[in-house]
Amino acid sequence: MDKGSKILERMIHAANIRQKVIASNIANSDTPGYKGKDVKFNNLLGNEMKLAATNPKHIGGGKSAEVSSRSEVEDNLSWEDRNNVELNVEVAKMTENSLLHDTAVTILSSKIRMYKNALRTK
């Protein structure tokens, strides 16, 4: 539809990937030698949101948009079983991620509702 929807779609996709990684971390919180992973979402807004800066006072655009699905190993301290997953941190990350996902879905929903209203004939 429009650029905004594309960004929201990307956000939802990104939150889905991150949820998978966090769920794996939580599942393996007691596995010897397991290293926790995380996904970094740099530049999520990216090119889609780049505003045309026709005046130096305009807000600059974002950077290039790549949702990296590459998991990065976290560099926490390891316990003696060489596992470095912090259960409470993972649960907190999961809550945050779920809120991010729900926010994106809610905004996308209201966007769709706006289109529906606009398309209504009477």
């Binding site: 889905n16 949820q19 769920a23 939580i26 259960l87 993972e90 999961m94 809550t95 779920s98 729900d102």
Partner: peptide, 13 residues
């Protein structure tokens, strides 16, 4: 419990 929570959150999403 943490895994139950993860399950429920994924389901909620």
């Amino acid at each position: 419990e943490a895994n139950v929570r993860a399950f429920n959150m994924s389901k909620g999403m």
